[in-house]
Write a protein that binds this DNA or RNA. Structure first.
Length: 459
DNA sequence: GCATGATCATGC
DNA sequence: GCATGATCATGC
């Protein structure tokens, strides 16, 4: 097969399959390319296009292979704790032209034209390895028309476009949608573009399949899939419709009534999360089911007191002091998590002494809060650790810290989070006041007062 | 009553 | 034994 000409579908498949088991080095050697001349500027994808298929990067507005209408994507996966597999990155698709994308319907959109058929090549990413040594292990032709998720993807696209039509392109967030998201694309947050229905410049964004969605695909196609349970079983409903049906069925019932209905007799702390799994008729934890995993939705139970108060803040996993100072705000774990995670809150409100299930609230943190309050808190935390300026003073044996407190920030704060105060992580810089080289594990918390604002409609 | 430091309970 | 979600205890 001569490279560099117009391929049809079968030829693309043959070439893709021929790459399996090869590294970039192997491919370059076959093409007699001097390895010293290669850098990774355009990413592995561009090298594969150039040297495996013999095509030059084309005008971005149409798929890589024309007239076959197939887009090529080379994407990494990795091994994580416990030997499981995970996508290493979201799959970044075309940049959104806010001025144009809203003009057509889904099946005639630029998104659809460019991405409805994608030839995927997966390579295994490994730490401390040169990119030319990553091995391509799997390939798949992904045709959206045939995807079981096409309905949801169309819903996601419609949601994104509706935000553009409302003049809210600047409020887009990756966590807005289930599978098809929008991720920021560009050197920094000053890479902005105009939008048609507002004078506010919006951050440049591209369509993407979320990391969580790609992870499920990796597990399905490459391994580790067997034990994932689906929420949607034998129904034509979309996820949203199904969820609404479940909620309507159980709304207004008390915790006691639900326990009786599901024959649960337990004093467990997580009784409410046991109840919600049963509402959805799944045996796994709701968070571990396919749809929740793919969309990166985290279910959480919330208790509202009779006064309308929410007592507890929401915790994140504890962070390592060392890791914080190795990161920068733009790419740090916390920002990534808040931008990609959607929370499904199951609301239990106390009425006449009993908790009553009041429904759910799907929520993700607005961009404006992430880029202001959360950023300020994160940066202060970074500086506090970097300067070894943890302890402010000690009184009655209790240490007061310089970490951001709940009253200092509208959205979030830093507090201990471990087994007890002796459960510590190492400090990169010893604490100035006490000389301590390790300190009680801490984590980021979302303020209970801020959370209360999310649930105004339930009061 | 709330903010903050501290700790519990469960599952793997 | 640890990670994680959830909750407690105390002083202002």
């Amino acid at each position: 097969m001569k490279k560099g000409r117009l391929y049809n579908r079968q030829e693309i498949e043959v070439i893709s399959k021929s790459a399996i088991g090869k590294t970039m080095n192997d491919i370059l050697k076959e093409e007699l390319v001097s390895i010293g001349d290669i850098d990774n500027k355009g990413g592995l994808g561009q090298l594969i296009e150039q040297y495996l298929f013999g095509i030059q990067t084309n005008n971005e507005s149409e798929p890589d292979f024309m007239p076959a209408g197939i887009e090529l994507k080379v994407t990494p996966y990795k091994k994580i704790k416990g030997g499981k597999l995970s996508a290493k990155e979201r799959l970044v698709l075309n940049i959104i032209n806010y001025m144009e994308e809203w003009k057509n319907d889904f099946r005639h959109s630029h998104f659809w034209m460019k991405n409805n058929t994608i030839q995927l090549l997966w390579y295994l990413w490994e730490p401390n390895k040169d990119f030319k040594d990553f091995k391509i292990t799997h390939e798949k032709l992904m045709e959206l028309v045939q995807s079981e998720d096409i309905k949801q993807i169309e819903n996601d696209w419609n949601y994104i476009v509706s935000k553009i039509k409302e003049g809210k392109a600047h409020e887009l967030s990756e966590a807005d949608t289930m599978y098809l998201g929008t991720c920021t694309k560009g050197v920094n947050s000053s890479s902005t573009r105009e939008q048609p229905f507002s004078d506010i410049k919006a951050m440049q964004r591209a369509f993407c399949f979320k990391n969580s969605y790609m992870t499920q695909m990796v597990r399905k196609i490459i391994g580790d899939y067997s034990d994932v349970e689906k929420v949607l079983k034998g129904t034509n409903n979309t996820f949203n419709e199904y969820v609404n049906n479940v909620i309507e069925k159980y709304k207004g019932k008390t915790q006691k009534e639900l326990m009786k209905e599901f024959s649960i007799d337990s004093k467990a702390k997580n009784i409410n999360s046991m109840l919600i799994s049963r509402m959805f008729n799944v045996t796994s934890k709701l968070a571990d089911t396919e749809e929740f995993q793919k969309a990166n939705i985290i279910p959480k139970t919330i208790r509202i007191e009779e006064s309308g108060r929410i007592k507890e803040s929401i915790s994140f996993p504890s962070f390592k002091f060392n890791e914080i100072i190795e990161q920068e705000w733009e790419t740090c774990d916390l920002r990534e998590e808040l931008e990609t995670t959607k929370y499904m809150f199951f609301v239990f409100k106390k009425e006449k002494g009993e908790y009553v299930f009041k429904g759910i609230k799907l929520w993700n943190m607005p961009e404006t809060d992430i880029e202001t309050s959360v950023m300020e808190m994160w940066k202060k935390t970074y500086n506090t650790i970097l300067n070894g300026n943890i302890v402010r003073y000690i009184k009655d044996g209790k240490r007061k810290t310089n970490f951001v407190g709940m009253s200092e920030n509208e959205v979030c704060h830093v507090r201990p989070h471990g087994r007890d105060s002796r459960d510590t992580f190492k400090l990169p810089v010893a604490d100035k006041l006490t000389g301590a080289t390790e300190y009680t594990k801490q984590c980021f918390w979302i303020n209970s007062n801020y959370i209360k604002g999310i649930f105004e409609e339930f009061n």
